[in-house]
Simulated assay, not measured.
Amino acid sequence: SDITCDSFKISWDMQSGGRDQITHYFIDLNKKEDRSSHKVKHMDVPTKLVAKAVPLPMTVRGHWFLSPRTQYTVSVQTAVKQPDGEYVVSSWSEITEFCTADYSTVQLMQLLQKAEAIAGRMLPFTVFYRNQQEYFQPNRDAQRCQMLPSVKDNSGSHGSPISNKLEGIFFSCNTEFNTGKPPQDSPYGPYRFQVQADILFNHNTNMYFGDFYCMYTSYHYVILVLAPNGSKGDTFCKGRLPVLDRSNNGFLTFTKEDSGALSFHHAQDVILEVIYTEP
């Protein structure tokens, strides 16, 4: 693609007569202001002088530290350096708007490697669980006790392909190392729903790495996606997210015991957020 999460390639028409005389390009690249946003706006990137003459189309990558999923505007101006050091410049080109893309598998693999480095040892667990506030209870009862999927919000890495796109039910599986059970308290609410691990995570489930981030604290979060093979969520994740070996990864595994039962383990040193795509 001509536009990725941190680069763009855009062409402008030029008159061929003076093209050979061009020595420099001025590039004006700005982050487009979102007037509906209350976030602190980054300062616009100032006009840059490219020190080396390059032919159009040209690719600008990394130099301006582009952010994923962000609207930008860009225009170009050509310049011819004179013997006295002054420049003869053209008028500015038309302004082009573009939006950078999500993280590719390259960036996600980099996050995956960072997460693996701090995941820590594996601890056993037996259930997935989620806590919620009381006001969710009537909605669940109205749907015959079925928990309805919701769209993943914007928390986590800004460029994660699943944010605002993937639907699912959110679960936790972390346990206290001294009891082997889920923690008694949760910031998400006092009401807890839990399900045996093998119902959601088994040989018919594909697992994907979705994100790795921190909340400016000592806690690090890893988002994993559990998608039944061939499901809508599985189709969405294929090609977008790194797939994980169910029995050999640093975050969430199951192995088959001699009795035929499955044994489950989770990483100790990261907080796992598990999205199950099919309710």
Rank of each mutant, 00 (worst) to 15 (best):
P46E: 03
D44V: 01
N204H: 14
L148N: 00
V225G: 10
I10F: 10
H158I: 12
Q113V: 11
N30L: 07
V195P: 01
F209H: 00
Y216I: 06
R140I: 14
A79S: 05
G168Q: 04
P124V: 15
I169A: 02
E86L: 00
R140Y: 03
V106T: 08
D102S: 09
T47A: 00
P228A: 07
V40H: 14
P138V: 02
Y213T: 11
M207K: 00
L166Y: 04
G168S: 05
G180P: 13
Q113K: 13
I3H: 05
Q113D: 08
N248C: 12
P138I: 03
F264S: 03
L112Y: 12
N164T: 08
F125L: 15
V45H: 12
L148G: 00
Y216D: 15
A119N: 04
C214R: 11
N139K: 04
A51Q: 07
T105P: 00
G168H: 10
W12C: 11
L262N: 05
L262G: 02
K41Q: 08
M207C: 13
P182Q: 13
H63I: 05
G120F: 15
T105Q: 07
A267M: 10
P68S: 10
S1R: 07
V76N: 02
H158K: 09
P46A: 04
N204S: 13
P149M: 02
P242V: 00
Q146G: 00
D2V: 10
E167Q: 10
H42A: 15
Q137T: 13
C237M: 14
Q146H: 02
S1F: 06
Q15W: 02
G18I: 14
V243F: 04
L166A: 06
F193D: 12
E86H: 14
S218P: 02
I162Q: 05
S160N: 11
A261M: 09
K9V: 12
D258C: 06
I162M: 03
V76M: 11
W92Y: 10
Q137N: 09
C214S: 14
G18W: 12
L123H: 13
D185H: 12
D84M: 03
K114F: 01
T205Y: 00
T4Q: 09
K31G: 13
D28G: 00
A261E: 06
S259M: 13
Q132W: 02
V80L: 10
Q77S: 03
R69Q: 12
P183T: 07
D20N: 07
T70M: 14
P124M: 12
P182G: 15
D6I: 10
H38Y: 14
A117R: 02
F209D: 04
T47P: 00
V88F: 08
Q268W: 15
G233F: 01
S7H: 01
Y188D: 04
D211V: 10
W12Q: 04
F170L: 13
L66E: 05
N30R: 15
E116L: 04
H158L: 12
R144E: 08
S90A: 08
D20Q: 14
A267F: 08
V50G: 06
I27S: 12
P83L: 15
R246Y: 06
